[in-house]
Write a protein that binds this DNA or RNA. Structure first.
Lengths: 233, 233
DNA sequence: TGACAGCGCAGAGCAGTGCTCTTTAATGGA
DNA sequence: TCCATTAAAGAGCACTGCTCTGCGCTGTCA
């Protein structure tokens, strides 16, 4: 009875996987709002109502795609980090930044779904929060590794972080950036947001007629941000 | 004959304005993808096809809203800047940053439409590029004012900007940031993107469970960025 | 082996969308 | 006053997400 149950479960998983794959390819070509349950069903040779056996609503399908997106960015970051010598903190950090950008350029619609404006009417469920931290975890670990090795030297140009950031910094230390000071934690978060600000601006057309060589500009800006966070040049 | 023509034109303008207003209020409550031409028509007591006399398509309505959004942010930035003593460059700069954030918090859906992921299938026309620079112009003028007054002292922690940024910097000098060095221009653009990265992260839920006192954190981060650009603390 | 419950799928249908086309009404100039 | 231009209405097309009902297959237990 367990065997049969898993047989059913297996076919179910297979179909679920196929649905998300077709949905992802549609997302890649049409964008999030162009994703149509009926079109997915058509492409699978099913009738639209059958999809609802697997995803109770369109939003649930989107949620699955968002989770996939977070994981894909996380994997990209992890691989980029792993490919660097572990003592080269600046190199690892830059590699992660580049990995995020390259993934975004390769999957613009998925990036938009994950880091762009939330799809209207759609509320990101708690489910997405865990995978969201995956890439940030890589980022944080590099900072914390650099700190532990004494390789972190944040230039004294920032005012001290606000008192109210204390508990947040403690939470960050407990999860992704061990033993780092409040000041460094604040700079790191700011650097993380600056990374995504840069990627979003490039992807969403804000650099049109402003920046031509975006590879080089990104590289330069990230080096600045890294330096601000305390990484060596 | 001119008078009558303008009478017709006037009623036309009035209705066009009313359509965009209702559309904007719908945008504010439903979000971009929830904006429905038919709903706008209903609210005006018209039939849906009549709207097409004023806006050839839904995308054209969105374009009008985007232009309005850019202008609104521009106005907010201009007013914030004007309210500061002109010699207080850091104060002016911070005021503009705050103005952008406050406008975004007050008009999240409009912000998402303008600076979030482009609506699927929608291509921002050239029309939107001019209003887009309005807020950036304020920002650039502060930097250039500070530079002219000798109040800009960028800390030497950044590598020099890439050669390929030269022409872009020249274009920026010609338009929004007179006489500023390539290095400062690059830092300023990066600061501008960091500002929007921060606002987007906050607005799109990326700070959930990470940053609690977002006012204070924003303030601190922007002070860091300003310092990095060369403004005095 | 046969009855039964659960599951997956098909199909029809509802309410909504953007957009087009044709027809009707109003407006304002000659 | 006539008549062309413009606005509005209404019907209709193709599409969407989603629901509900009914049918057939599958695996289970007596």
């Amino acid at each position: 009875m367990n065997a049969s149950r898993t047989a059913r479960e297996r076919v179910r998983e297979e179909l679920t996987r196929e649905i998300t794959e077709i949905a992802r390819s549609q997302l890649a070509t049409e964008g999030a709002a162009g994703l149509s349950l009926r079109a997915v069903a058509r492409e699978m040779g099913m009738v639209s109502s059958a999809i609802y056996r697997y995803f109770p609503s369109r939003d649930d399908l989107l949620t699955a795609l968002i989770i996939d997106g977070y994981n894909a960015i996380g994997v990209a970051a992890e691989q980029a980090d792993a490919a660097c010598p572990s003592g080269d903190y600046t190199g690892r950090w830059l590699a992660v930044c580049r990995a995020v950008r390259n993934w975004a350029l390769a999957h613009p619609h998925e990036y938009a779904l994950v880091y762009g404006s939330p799809v209207p009417g759609y509320q990101a469920p708690q489910q997405t929060i865990a995978p969201a931290t995956r890439a940030a975890t890589v980022y944080g670990k590099i900072i914390s590794d650099a700190h532990r090795a004494g390789a972190l030297d944040p230039p004294g140009i920032c005012p001290p972080p606000p008192q109210s950031f204390g508990p947040d910094a403690a939470a960050l230390r407990a999860s992704v950036m061990a033993k780092v000071s409040d000041d460094v934690a604040a700079r790191a978060v700011a650097g993380w947001t600056a990374l995504f600000g840069m990627v979003s601006f490039e992807l969403f057309g804000q650099f049109e007629n402003v920046i031509t060589d975006r590879d080089a500009f990104f590289e330069h800006s990230m080096r600045c941000q890294g330096r601000l966070t305390g990484l060596s040049p």
